[in-house]
């Protein structure tokens, strides 16, 4: 995790590398497993979920960072949850109004972003200690990392489990291995991706 002191210059590339690979919220920190498994049955769902979570991450990180000196230590978790819940409700309403199909297929998992531990983790470990701009950037890169991880799992599961990709049929309407559409298949794919990321990280010659 990059320690960004208030004086340090913001290294944008470092943020992206951190959020997408080195500290990928899903594959490395293993946060937010519930939405990862539940909404990764199709690529479209994964992209929708990723976009919604990224929006909430950026907004909540920004708001919490701006308020970090006003929020008393003793009630910080309650304050964070209220702020996060507010943004989640907003994105939920906006999705219901303007992308109802996506909102229907994601259903309960949009309101459940409130308790997505990626968001609370970034609020507590980053936004509450850093200035607004790095915090928003952290939200963006962590959100992108989450979206990429979710999309990787979802693409494999959709191709193998339903025989489609973004709704297009690939194998003439048959599903090669429908177990991958079920939760068990989700765990399998996730496990392989985590192993792959660990392998790549260790081969690169020990970032840590």
């Amino acid at each position: 995790m990059p320690k960004v002191s208030n004086e340090a210059k913001i290294n944008i590339a470092q943020f992206f590398r951190n959020g997408i690979i080195e500290n990928n919220p899903t594959f490395v920190q293993l946060l937010g497993m519930c939405p990862t498994l539940a909404t990764s049955t199709s690529l479209l769902n994964a992209l929708g979920m990723g976009a919604a979570a990224t929006f909430v991450l950026i907004c909540s990180n920004l708001a919490i960072s701006l308020l970090r000196k006003l929020i008393p230590q003793k009630i910080r978790i309650a304050a964070y949850i209220v702020i996060i819940a507010g943004f989640v409700t907003m994105i939920d309403l906006l999705m219901q109004a303007f992308v109802p199909a996506l909102s229907n297929s994601l259903g309960l998992f949009i309101p459940l972003i409130v308790v997505n531990c990626i968001i609370l983790a970034r609020a507590e470990s980053f936004a509450s200690k850093n200035r607004p701009l790095p915090s928003a950037l952290d939200g963006l890169t962590m959100g992108i990392g989450f979206t990429i991880a979710l999309s990787c799992v979802a693409a494999v599961r959709e191709i193998l489990g339903s025989g489609t990709l973004l709704g297009f049929e690939l194998f003439g309407g048959t599903a090669p291995l429908s177990i991958f559409a079920l939760p068990a298949g989700g765990f399998l794919v996730l496990g392989f991706f985590i192993a792959l990321v660990q392998f790549l990280k260790s081969r690169k010659g020990g970032t840590k």
């Binding site: 308020l67 006003l70 929020i71 008393p72 003793k74 009630i75 309650a78 304050a79 209220v82 702020i83 819940a85 507010g86 409700t89 907003m90 309403l93 906006l94 219901q96 109004a97 303007f98 109802p100």
Partner: peptide, 30 residues
């Protein structure tokens, strides 16, 4: 502490109400 939390909740609620006012007609139409 209570006043701070109330203030944060109040501001958040006001913002949510604003978004709701914009989206409610669209949602009910759908």
């Amino acid at each position: 502490l209570s006043l701070t939390l109330c203030l944060i909740a109040g501001i958040t609620a006001a913002l949510v109400a604003l978004v709701n006012a914009v989206t409610a007609p669209e949602i009910s139409r759908r």
